[in-house]
Computed example of a mutant assay.
Amino acid sequence: MSSSRARRAADLLGATKMDRPEDVEANPQTDKVYVMLTNNARRKAEQVDAANPRANNEFGHIIEMLPEGGDHAARKFTWEILVKCGNPSIADVGATFSSATSKDGWFGMPDNCAIDSEGRLWVSTDGMSEKSTGRTDGLFAIDTEGAARGTSKLFFRCPAGAELCGPMPTPDLTTFFVAVQHPGDDGKDWSAFGRISTFDDPATRWPDFQDGMPPRPSIVAITKRGGGKIAG
């Protein structure tokens, strides 16, 4: 079935229209399910609802769902919004990260996600530079339980023009694999470069940084200097 027909079928069944779901992952320790809603600038004020609380939702949000009885085949879930993304220092954005989130910890456009062996939620982003945030995309760790719930911390920043996808930690948390897609794209959207990125004049030459070498998508394995867990 094509995606357009799936949407029409969902409309007929009365499904809630969401702000562009990109990824869904379940936490095996808590049974909670996390849905990455990347953004939806087309949502109008009259279309706002409980699950999609912002019109012109440029930065997206994350919904946390819990299946009835812990059964993921259940027909009913309880849910709440974990975070509304964007810059919390700009009131009109309406972001809702924990107040413990630093100025480097907030993000927008949640895309892929992963849950590590300690239950921590990791979120990769796609589209930060396109929204004139002055930031590139990256990988962020979010606490989902206790007093630190909703606190986000920056872990990895992408090169200019790239998006981050496919985050995957090893079970022992000593290595974190990430995929960096299309580095050097969208040069005109990156203020430090400010013009169209081309093969001969790319916004970055990551990861080789050598004249004559184009930017290349890559899989990166991140480890801690000296070894050990990359996150505590």
Results as ranks from 00 to 15, higher is better:
residue 120 R to D: 01
residue 120 R to M: 13
residue 120 R to S: 10
residue 120 R to H: 11
residue 121 L to S: 01
residue 121 L to I: 07
residue 122 W to K: 03
residue 122 W to T: 04
residue 123 V to E: 01
residue 123 V to G: 02
residue 124 S to E: 02
residue 125 T to S: 02
residue 126 D to G: 01
residue 128 M to P: 00
residue 128 M to W: 00
residue 129 S to P: 10
residue 130 E to K: 14
residue 132 S to P: 07
residue 132 S to L: 12
residue 132 S to H: 13
residue 133 T to F: 05
residue 134 G to H: 14
residue 134 G to P: 08
residue 135 R to N: 13
residue 135 R to V: 12
residue 135 R to K: 15
residue 135 R to G: 07
residue 136 T to P: 07
residue 137 D to A: 13
residue 137 D to P: 04
residue 137 D to S: 13
residue 137 D to L: 11
residue 138 G to H: 02
residue 138 G to L: 04
residue 139 L to I: 01
residue 143 D to S: 14
residue 143 D to V: 08
residue 144 T to S: 07
residue 147 A to N: 08
residue 148 A to T: 14
residue 149 R to C: 07
residue 149 R to K: 15
residue 151 T to N: 04
residue 151 T to D: 02
residue 152 S to V: 09
residue 153 K to Q: 12
residue 154 L to E: 09
residue 154 L to G: 05
residue 155 F to Y: 11
residue 156 F to Y: 14
residue 156 F to C: 05
residue 157 R to H: 11
residue 157 R to G: 13
residue 158 C to S: 10
residue 160 A to T: 13
residue 161 G to T: 11
residue 161 G to D: 05
residue 162 A to V: 10
residue 163 E to Y: 04
residue 163 E to V: 03
residue 163 E to I: 03
residue 164 L to N: 00
residue 165 C to N: 03
residue 165 C to W: 00
residue 165 C to K: 02
residue 165 C to L: 06
residue 166 G to Q: 11
residue 167 P to Q: 00
residue 167 P to W: 00
residue 169 P to H: 04
residue 170 T to K: 05
residue 171 P to N: 09
residue 171 P to S: 12
residue 172 D to V: 05
residue 172 D to R: 14
residue 173 L to K: 09
residue 173 L to T: 09
residue 174 T to I: 11
residue 174 T to Y: 06
residue 174 T to Q: 14
residue 174 T to M: 06
residue 174 T to L: 06
residue 176 F to C: 09
residue 176 F to L: 15
residue 177 F to Y: 15
residue 178 V to T: 07
residue 178 V to D: 02
residue 180 V to K: 07
residue 180 V to W: 05
residue 180 V to G: 10
residue 180 V to Y: 03
residue 181 Q to P: 03
residue 181 Q to Y: 08
residue 181 Q to S: 06
residue 182 H to F: 06
residue 183 P to F: 01
residue 183 P to N: 10
residue 183 P to R: 03
residue 184 G to K: 05
residue 184 G to L: 07
residue 184 G to W: 03
residue 185 D to H: 11
residue 186 D to E: 13
residue 187 G to R: 10
residue 187 G to M: 09
residue 187 G to L: 10
